[in-house]
Amino acid sequence: MTVVSVSMPDELLERLDSFADEHGYTGRSEVVREASRNLLTEFQDKQLEDRELMGIVTVLFDFESTDVEHKMMHLRHDYEQLVISHVHNHVGDHYCMELFILEGSLEDISTFVGKIRATQDTLSIDYSVMPVDRIDGVV
């Protein structure tokens, strides 16, 4: 097995180690391998391929210490064909929440989510995807 070096903040590493201990993993490598497999397969659902999809992506970040808001604005403009609606809300004293409503292919939505995940300093990213034809009652 190949050994890979990964950089991450101390806080994330501590959370990773705690998670491994609490859930019975043999170590952080096992957690990272499982997380990597899950991330790489989450958009490979055959039932979603070749269908028009709706996606909802929620991003939380601290607006006082980062330029995430600026990066979200650029993503919104870069993917204006995919983003059919967008909401920006202030949460608490210094947090912002971006909500993106998307309509497009699995490939386009997964690319968009990947770009958001690659944005440094986001605190939380959550999303869901569903076929648009389910809204009409057709499965």
Score class of each variant (00 low, 15 high):
Arg15Ile: 11
Ala20Gly: 09
Ala20His: 09
Ala20Met: 13
Glu22Ala: 08
His23Leu: 08
Gly24Glu: 05
Tyr25Pro: 15
Thr26Cys: 07
Ser29His: 11
Ser29Tyr: 12
Arg33Gln: 12
Ala35Asn: 08
Ala35Leu: 14
Ala35Met: 13
Leu40Ser: 10
Gln44Ile: 05
Gln44Phe: 07
Asp45Thr: 05
Lys46Cys: 08
Glu52Arg: 08
Glu52Tyr: 06
Met54Tyr: 12
Met54Lys: 14
Gly55His: 05
Ile56Pro: 00
Ile56Asn: 04
Val57Tyr: 11
Thr58Glu: 15
Thr58Pro: 03
Val59His: 00
Leu60Lys: 01
Phe63Met: 01
Ser65Phe: 00
Asp67Val: 00
Glu69Ser: 01
Lys71Pro: 01
Met72Arg: 01
His74Tyr: 05
His74Met: 13
Leu75Gln: 05
Arg76Gln: 13
Asp78Val: 03
Tyr79Asn: 06
Tyr79Ile: 10
Glu80Phe: 11
Leu82Gln: 09
Leu82Tyr: 14
Leu82Asp: 09
Val83Tyr: 05
Val83Trp: 05
Val83Ala: 12
Ser85Lys: 14
His88Asp: 04
Asn89Thr: 15
Asp93Gln: 03
Tyr95Lys: 06
Glu98Val: 02
Ile101Pro: 03
Gly104Gln: 04
Ser105Asp: 11
Ser105His: 11
Leu106Pro: 01
Ile109Leu: 11
Thr111Trp: 08
Arg117Glu: 14
Ala118Trp: 06
Ala118Val: 04
Ala118Thr: 03
Ala118Tyr: 07
Gln120Ala: 05
Asp121Tyr: 01
Leu123Gln: 07
Leu123Arg: 04
Leu123Tyr: 06
Asp126Val: 10
Tyr127His: 10
Tyr127Asn: 12
Met130Gln: 13
Met130Asp: 10
Pro131Leu: 08
Pro131Lys: 09
Val132Asp: 10
Val132His: 06
Asp133Asn: 07
Arg134Asp: 10
Ile135His: 06
Ile135Cys: 07
Asp136Asn: 10
Asp136Phe: 15
Asp136Leu: 15
Gly137Gln: 01
